[in-house]
Write a protein that binds this DNA or RNA. Structure first.
Lengths: 144, 144
DNA sequence: TCGTTAACTTGACTCACTCCAGAAAAGACG
DNA sequence: CGTCTTTTCTGGAGTGAGTCAAGTTAACGA
């Protein structure tokens, strides 16, 4: 787990000013992958005290824009953030409880950009979401 | 393009009651693939007159649940609906104008369910969204 | 034709997220 | 260190897709 110092370096590396809310948000997302905005606000407030939700939204947008965070929003879910960026991984989402887990790219490390007919689009990223049932919900369904 | 008669058969096949709003919604989605809810409401009202937005939401949910429509919601966009179901195709989304186009599954006709490590999840569907720039936006960017 | 039940109407409501204007803090420079 | 400029944060109001709930209407099987 990175320290506050690492976060500071990450911010400076992205030429972003170093502020307490930013450190706290980065830290919160590292600790709680796939957390939604509300949970992040909660965690940040636990560490810092009062922080406006607006600040968190701004920070999340700034960090997402800088590439330090990645925003994911599966259908039927609010926006979630994660800290794993740049490694082209994907997600499995549980249909019944909404749990999210990471999955490495099935077609290797390179972006899996192999659309059969791209309609003239210039494709730069492929996003994959696997839908299914998580282990907990599977056993729960069986035992019922 | 299917006729009202075809839509009626589709509804009965799904053991859903045949009502004017449902026919109109099915028809609207067939005519305007990837349309958002608001546009669908507009088209339906053009054909039927007054229809409550609630009715359209209900119909869309019923038809989606019955498998007659498919709901897609790319990040940063509102929910959109399409009538191509059951053929496991995916979508390209333009980052700058939001245009959506269909793309047949790159890994063949079978659902491309090949996650490298599924964390114990039982996966039943893989949803792929390709992000890029549409031809119009590409040429617009070049000429500027 | 009638009764049951699903579907539709109306209207209020929720909630994630955004916009705005002013206050505060960070970083640069002398 | 002190001041200035720029960026960020605060608080509150606002937006809009989508939902909830109660009552009415209409489809369909008997």
């Amino acid at each position: 787990m990175p320290t506050a110092f690492d976060f500071e370096r990450m911010l400076r590396g992205a030429s972003l000013r170093v502020t307490a809310p930013r450190i706290a948000v980065l830290s919160a997302v590292h600790e709680h992958p796939h957390a939604d905005t509300d949970s992040i606000i909660g965690v940040v407030r636990q560490n810092l005290g009062a922080v406006s939700h607006q600040a968190v939204y701004d920070v999340l947008r700034a960090l997402t824009g800088a590439g330090l965070l990645r925003r994911i929003e599966p259908q039927g879910s609010v926006a979630r953030y994660e800290a794993r960026v740049g490694d082209n991984h994907h997600h499995v989402v549980c249909r019944s409880c909404g749990a999210i887990a990471d999955v490495d790219c099935a077609t290797g490390a390179a972006p899996c950009l192999d659309a059969s007919d791209d309609h003239g689009f210039v494709i730069d990223e492929a996003e994959v979401i696997y839908w299914g049932t998580c282990p907990e919900c599977t056993t729960a369904a069986k035992s019922s």
